[in-house]
Design a protein around this nucleic acid. Structure first.
Lengths: 190, 190
DNA sequence: GCAAAACGATAACAAATGTTTAGATTTCTA
DNA sequence: TAGAAATCTAAACATTTGTTATCGTTTTGC
């Protein structure tokens, strides 16, 4: 729990008492490699903070093809936050790609924090803004860069991804097929 | 200004006094059709609230091609909010597509609001969350739907877009060429 | 440690999407 | 209101990207 406490203290002004009360309702949990953490079609009522490991977010399209929307790394929150906010059934699946340790924040705890922590809303704003910036970059890259350019830049966001994630999942994240990524690496086309 | 005041009252609990002080620092401004509201390469120090009209957000890639990232409609905020937060030079251009009336919120006013409005951070959180949900949908659609499917669904988000925006800008928003959109409409491929 | 599964490269072919050009129509602007 | 500019469609061709199948290699789970 120490890692999560340090994260909170670095984000907002929070007293020892607040920290104790808040984190006492958060639950550590561990997943094994390839474990499914969360499936689509149920309302997400938890947010996860990653202490260690890596979590992949996927969506399955109408043809049954699975697309990798996101990789979440250490010291980041992950959830289907859209559906969490809207209290609607999730569209995403979450999967641990390594032995992964998380802190679970149930909905009741999140809402309690917004209401009762002196800077609870500010924390919420900062986290939402952080992901806004990340998503904005995602969208920008999908429009303005070729798949090859997105591949070349991927380590800027996911530093050691090539050692932690199989290439076909990276291809999926880039929005292309594994065969095509293999081709791009060989240097044909751009 | 009345429209903006109503928007604020609907989003958060805000006293008449707070409302008066806050909105007295906000500046109404009008743009003509095709006016450039904001250019890339300067740090954005304003957020716009749209009373009337429609604003297009674009990015120009390394080959000089312009991509339409977003359309902003009535009763929405618009800015290069990422670069606003990070105080970095903007990557986007904003352009009025119709005679457009906005409320300008200078950075000083936004930051004053976060600090001094009782629910300032909450407003910031709610707005950031709103755009998080929108962007999440954007990314999801880019991965899981074909251009044709995105075209068929576009009025869900931009109701009367076909009457307000030329088709080649819609194509740009969909991530395809105008020629290709014309083809899709004819019903070839999917 | 071994058998099975997953993984990545490659080739041949298919489908989707982009490029260029032209022409007809609509819309804007002076 | 007339001329110019913008817009949309269309066709032919080029390029990119996907699909399927195969074959070594690596990794994994028992």
């Amino acid at each position: 729990m120490e890692q999560f406490r340090a994260y909170l203290q670095q984000m907002i002004n929070i007293s020892k008492d607040e920290l104790d009360v808040f984190t006492s309702s958060c639950i550590p949990k561990a997943f094994k490699r390839n474990d499914i953490i969360s499936r689509p079609d149920t309302v997400p009522n938890e947010i996860f903070f990653i202490n260690k490991g890596i979590i992949r977010v996927t969506i399955t399209d109408n043809d049954g093809v699975e697309h990798t929307i996101h990789f979440a790394l250490e010291n980041q929150f992950i959830a289907d936050y859209s559906c969490f906010i809207m209290k609607q059934p999730s569209l995403y699946a979450l999967q641990a790609l390594e032995q992964t340790e998380v802190i679970v924040l149930p909905r009741s705890v999140v809402e309690w924090g917004y209401k009762n922590l002196a800077e609870g809303d500010k924390l919420g704003r900062l986290v939402a803004e952080f992901y806004f910036i990340y998503q904005d970059m995602r969208i920008r890259n999908l429009y303005a860069y070729t798949p090859k350019e997105r591949y070349d830049k991927i380590t800027e966001v996911f530093p050691d991804i090539h050692n932690r994630v199989p290439q076909h999942m990276i291809a999926s994240y880039l929005g292309i097929t594994p065969v095509h990524l293999s081709r791009l690496k060989k240097g044909e086309s751009r």
